[in-house]
Amino acid sequence: MSLTLVLGGARSGKTSYALTEAGKRPAERRVMVATAEALDAEMAERIARHRAERGGAWATVEAPRELAAAVRELRSGEVAVIDCLTLWLTNLMLDEADLGAAVAELGLALRASPAELFVISNEVGQGIVPDNALARRFRDEAGWMHQAVAAAADQVVMVVAGLPLVLKG
């Protein structure tokens, strides 16, 4: 149906923006596709808080690694928010997965989805060059992933200080 990529820094307001916009769309079902894992108490608390803030109107699908498969399960009439690509990328990097293949597979799933999609990701390439190889690789992989998803997206929005800036669409 449509694909919106929502980029921004940490605490920029990107998730609030995506949830608000998704909430305006008519939908048979609203789905939060979450890529986070509760690996410690703080993250478990954060996940619980976000779930409570969304309330019962949102179904939650957990997809820390198999994101393309989760997207393929979405149906027409559904509105989904995917939060977030950079955390998914981190999970794949830690698993030493084939990132190129995973991003390509996700791109195909996003383009083929009959659902209305809002895909959230952290823009990490606007700061200094990281001081270690892993962080530089992450920054590079995130940038390439963002370019691929943005090319497929109908709309791309950058959120800065809670303000949406439409870059495409």
Rank of each mutant, 00 (worst) to 15 (best):
M1R: 06
S2L: 06
L3Q: 06
V6C: 01
V6Q: 02
L7Y: 05
L7R: 03
L7Q: 03
R11K: 12
R11W: 00
G13F: 01
T15K: 01
A18G: 12
A22P: 09
A22T: 08
G23N: 09
P26G: 09
A27K: 13
R29F: 07
A34W: 04
T35K: 08
T35P: 08
A36I: 00
A41S: 14
E42K: 11
E42A: 14
A44K: 12
A44S: 10
E45F: 10
R46Q: 08
R46W: 03
A48H: 04
H50P: 01
R51I: 09
R54Y: 02
G56D: 13
A57L: 06
T60K: 00
T60D: 00
V61S: 07
V61C: 09
V61K: 04
A63F: 11
A63I: 08
P64I: 06
E66H: 14
L67Y: 09
L67H: 08
L67C: 12
A69F: 13
A69R: 15
A70Q: 05
A70K: 07
V71M: 12
V71L: 11
R72I: 11
R72Y: 10
R72M: 11
E73C: 13
L74E: 03
R75K: 15
S76M: 09
S76R: 15
E78V: 11
C84V: 07
L87E: 00
L89D: 02
L89Y: 05
L89P: 02
L89V: 08
T90V: 09
E96K: 15
E96F: 05
A97N: 06
A97V: 13
A97R: 14
L99N: 09
A101I: 10
A102E: 15
L106I: 11
A109E: 10
L110G: 09
S113K: 02
V119T: 10
V119W: 03
E123W: 10
Q126G: 14
G127N: 01
G127F: 05
I128L: 15
V129M: 07
V129L: 14
P130F: 02
D131R: 14
L134V: 15
R137E: 15
F138S: 02
R139P: 05
D140W: 10
A142N: 02
H146P: 05
Q147W: 07
A148W: 02
V149W: 04
V149A: 05
V149F: 06
A150E: 01
A150F: 07
A150D: 00
V157T: 12
A161T: 14
P164D: 03
L165K: 09
L167S: 04
L167I: 06
G169M: 03
G169K: 04
G169H: 03
